[in-house]
Simulated scan of single mutants.
Amino acid sequence: MIELMINDRRHAVDAEPDTPLLFVLRDTLGLSGTKYGCGIGQCGACTVLLDGQVTRSCQMPLESVGTQAVTTIEAIEQDPVGAKVVAAWVGIEVPQCGYCQSGQVMAATGLLKTTPKPTDDDIASAMTNLCRCGTYNAIAAAVRQAAA
């Protein structure tokens, strides 16, 4: 059994130590807001916060999580910064298909937690998640609004 702290709750998980965190979140714990995209850490659909740091969960083995706190999209509005990001996302109507948006929100929250007043260059550097619908301008606008 591996103990994890996810969204401020302890979970004992029966899984191999090299199992990616993403699969435990989705398949074992039923937290399906974190999405599977590419499986190689490139697209960002699987983004979570690990002790507040943006992390691609498809590439994070359980054994590497240790005692770090995992925050998923299901709990992001409990964080004041996350709540601002979600409000901006909804206000600007960022999503089209919505598949990548949980990862986008997590990346934006991570950015604003470390850089509360990001420049356009900061936003471009941090928001590297892929969006097949091309909502990048709306994403950047929502990040700017959440930072205001």
Rank of each mutant, 00 (worst) to 15 (best):
M1I: 05
E3G: 05
E3K: 14
L4V: 11
L4Q: 13
N7F: 02
D8G: 08
R9A: 15
E16Y: 09
D18S: 15
T19M: 15
L21M: 10
L21T: 11
L21N: 13
L25D: 02
T28D: 15
G30H: 09
L31C: 06
S32L: 02
G33E: 02
G33L: 01
K35M: 07
Y36H: 15
G37Y: 01
G44R: 01
A45P: 06
L49N: 05
L49Q: 07
L50P: 05
R56K: 14
Q59G: 12
L62R: 14
E63F: 07
S64Y: 15
S64E: 14
S64H: 15
S64D: 14
V65K: 08
Q68H: 14
A69Y: 04
V70Q: 01
T71A: 09
T71R: 13
T72D: 06
I73Q: 07
A75I: 00
I76Y: 03
E77A: 08
Q78E: 12
P80N: 02
V81C: 10
V81D: 04
A83C: 13
K84L: 04
K84A: 14
A88H: 00
A88M: 05
V90F: 02
G91S: 10
E93C: 07
V94R: 00
P95D: 10
G103D: 12
G103F: 05
Q104F: 04
A107G: 07
A108C: 11
G110C: 12
K113T: 06
P116R: 08
T119P: 03
T119H: 10
D121E: 13
T128V: 14
T128R: 02
N129W: 01
L130A: 11
C131W: 03
R132T: 01
T135G: 07
Y136W: 07
A140R: 12
V143A: 12
A148P: 00
